[in-house]
C-alpha cells in the first residue's frame, strides 16, 4: 500500500514517528511537510495517487 503523510507539525512527536516507522516496514511511505513544501500541485497529485493519506 502507498501511504502519504502530510505533516502539519514542524517536528512530529514520538507517536507519529513510531507509526510512520511501523508503516514503512510493509508499505511505501511518502512524507510531505506542509510547512516546507508549498508545491500544492505536487501535493494534490500525491494525495490522488496514494492509497491512504494521513495528516498529522
Amino acid at each position: 500500500m502507498n501511504i502519504l503523510y502530510i505533516l502539519r507539525q514542524k517536528n512530529p512527536d514520538d507517536t507519529v514517528k513510531k507509526i510512520i516507522e511501523v508503516h514503512k516496514k510493509t508499505n511505501k511511505v511518502t512524507i510531505v511537510n506542509i510547512n516546507e513544501n508549498k508545491n500544492y500541485g505536487e501535493i494534490v497529485d500525491l494525495i490522488a495517487s496514494n492509497d491512504r493519506v494521513i495528516s498529522w
Binding site: 507517536t15 507509526i19 508503516h23 508499505n27 491512504r52
Partner: peptide
C-alpha cells in the same frame, strides 16, 4: 487507546494501532 490510564477503553500498543490503521479508508488525526 495506547494509554493504559483509560481503563474503560481497550488497550493496544502504538505499534498495534499503527497496524490497525491500515484497515481504514479515512484516517483522521
Amino acid at each position: 487507546t495506547n494509554c493504559k490510564e483509560n481503563s474503560n477503553i481497550e488497550y493496544l500498543s502504538t505499534e498495534e494501532i499503527a497496524q490497525k490503521l491500515l484497515e481504514f479508508d479515512n484516517i483522521l488525526p
